[in-house]
Write a protein that binds this DNA or RNA. Sequence first.
DNA 1: TGTACATCAGTGAACGCGCGTTCACTGATGTAC
DNA 2: TGTACATCAGTGAACGCGCGTTCACTGATGTAC
Lengths: 208, 208
Amino acid sequence: MSHTLGIRQVQKQKTRQALLDAALGLLEEQSLSSLGLREVTRAVGVAPTAFYRHFRSTADLGVALVEEALGSLHPMIRQTVATAEDSDQRIARAVQLIADHVDTYPAHVRFLARERHGGVQPVREAIRDQLARFAEEVKAELAKDPESGGWDDSDLMMLAHLYVDQMLITASLFMEARETSDEERDRVTRLATRQMRLISVGRRHWLG
Amino acid sequence: MSHTLGIRQVQKQKTRQALLDAALGLLEEQSLSSLGLREVTRAVGVAPTAFYRHFRSTADLGVALVEEALGSLHPMIRQTVATAEDSDQRIARAVQLIADHVDTYPAHVRFLARERHGGVQPVREAIRDQLARFAEEVKAELAKDPESGGWDDSDLMMLAHLYVDQMLITASLFMEARETSDEERDRVTRLATRQMRLISVGRRHWLG
DNA sequence: TGTACATCAGTGAACGCGCGTTCACTGATGTAC
DNA sequence: TGTACATCAGTGAACGCGCGTTCACTGATGTAC
């Protein structure tokens, strides 16, 4: 059997995860820069001092949340961008996956939207770095397209950033639509699809 | 002479403005949900209780800052979108105006980017409402274009939102580039210009 | 397997501090006559 | 213009409270022999 964690390590990971989960819950109604260490431990049911066994500060916990939030998003994007027959199908799948992701991990998505430009520098940097990695991956997939003939590296990077930003805007729109009607969600789906298509049309006629 | 304010009113406005300015300064390194009333009054040099003569809470002050920040942005956009000969010139002017605006009101721009998805609901709503008004105005200008023949209301609204979101992304990129090199600013200028052009190309070939 | 010692995740008391809010106040400005 | 009263922006003391951090601790788990 492969290296099994001891009881102590398993319990420690559980507490750590409980702190992350509790923090994410509390962050639905405030930002990280006002999140208190005592709030988090109170929500979990451990002593305030236990916090220090896992994180140096709430900023440090925030950086850990970034990893968790974008780690779960990473495989999704790559799969969607890679496996599609034509442009319209790729767009439809991407929009659907964003909608599903927002439904499945709403708190993570909210956290990212909120802290991307939030008041805690190390967290902003962690998000920026992860988004740059996304753009790199999208760029790599775009480069495989036959439509990318004649596009140099900076062209593709620009286009990749445009798609990544557009995905974030779409996620943000779905977040806003979460607690309203189904019609509103449909409206967002159509709007996002059309905006992506418009970028796609621009791509095909670029310098052409 | 038109209705002159008394000495008392003038002084009150000065104190109010000093509170807004001090808050904006403090918000460069934190978000509104962690901004303390005492911090703000301390920075201005008045007693903490003086705060209540002007605002009910820091959230209330935040809403006032939204008005101030987007009020100064409103005339700029309209003028730029309205007075341009061709698409490329319009884009070049818009990008230049965004760059200038970020240079002139960096703290306001940072505040908007940070609080748009921030932890204070009334402030989020105020920003969302103002951005919707922007999109309406951009839509009205787009409708005047000859290129808008055959576009219905929802088409134009989608396009207007796409442009407004793109302007915010561009402002955000200029913010990030502010404290780095001039070459970085030029890179952002070129990137933003190309992204806008791509949307513009997409627009011309939409359903065409 | 059993024993003796080391490790370390979580505890709980204690600290000094800044917070938001209340209240009665002061004194310059505004107003009525 | 002068006087007597009203208004109200800003004051300063006081309050109870939750905060982040320190410290010595406990006792279950891990390890060496």
